[in-house]
């Protein structure tokens, strides 16, 4: 196949894509449609992906990712719990003794993290269901039937998404801080360390957990 034939095939595909672009832009002005037809004809490889792409509102996580995130949370919380339990059993160092005094607080703290993780998963699940429902509406065209509820429903979904993101972010932060505390205890055991720093971190963690529980309590 020579250059002439290649150009002909390229242009034929270009005609098809420019027609598709014009049809899709039926709500646009005539100038915009003419422009789209021209650039779509010449540079169709750039526009082809926009035609075959699925209609999506924003970057929304898939259900697979949600379960993946939820598993990551639970795994990390379990790991933290194991490490803290091991530290509570060992009462040799000053850091462990500090922790032993706070044993009740630590247990409630782990429980709060678990319940927060569950809450995040529930919200993610709900969001996933809402997304699936809205995409079904888009595909099967059931939009018009309940059009009056559209903006409010969208607003509520956005609000739920925002809540989910905030809760998830807070949980990540708490997990990271707790892991920092554990490493600090390990360092303290072998190299000595600042007791005040560890106590400060412990206070910070408990205040974060308390704030999470308070926010969760207010919102739900």
């Amino acid at each position: 196949m020579g250059i002439g034939e290649t150009i002909i095939i390229y242009l034929v595909v270009g005609v098809g894509i420019s027609i598709a672009l014009v049809l899709r832009a039926s709500d646009k002005s005539q100038f915009e449609r003419a422009y789209l037809a021209t650039v779509g004809f010449i540079f169709w490889p750039i526009f082809l992906p926009t035609l075959i792409a699925a209609k999506r509102e924003t970057l929304i996580e898939s259900p697979r990712e949600i379960s993946e995130d939820s598993n990551v949370f639970l795994t990390r919380i379990s790991k933290i719990e194991d490490q803290l339990n091991a530290l509570l059993i060992n009462k040799d160092g000053w850091a462990e003794r500090v922790l032993a005094n706070e044993a009740d607080k630590i247990r409630s703290f782990i429980a709060a993290m678990r319940s927060q993780s569950q809450r995040v998963s529930e919200m993610a699940q709900l969001l996933s269901e809402l997304n699936a429902r809205s995409s079904t509406t888009l595909i099967f065209g059931g939009e018009g039937k309940h059009e009056e509820n559209g903006p409010e429903r969208g607003h509520n979904t956005d609000f739920l998404r925002q809540l989910h993101h905030t809760a998830e972010r807070e949980l990540w932060r708490t997990i990271a801080k707790t892991e920092e505390l554990i490493t600090m205890i390990y360092v303290g055991r072998f190299a000595g360390g600042s007791r005040s720093e560890m106590e400060e971190l412990l206070i910070a963690i408990s205040s974060t957990v308390e704030s999470i529980s308070a926010v969760a309590g207010q919102q739900f």
Partner: peptide
């Protein structure tokens, strides 16, 4: 909320 930007620093 347009998208979720993840950090590589472990703080979510």
């Amino acid at each position: 909320t347009i998208f979720k930007r993840f950090h590589g620093d472990g703080f979510g």
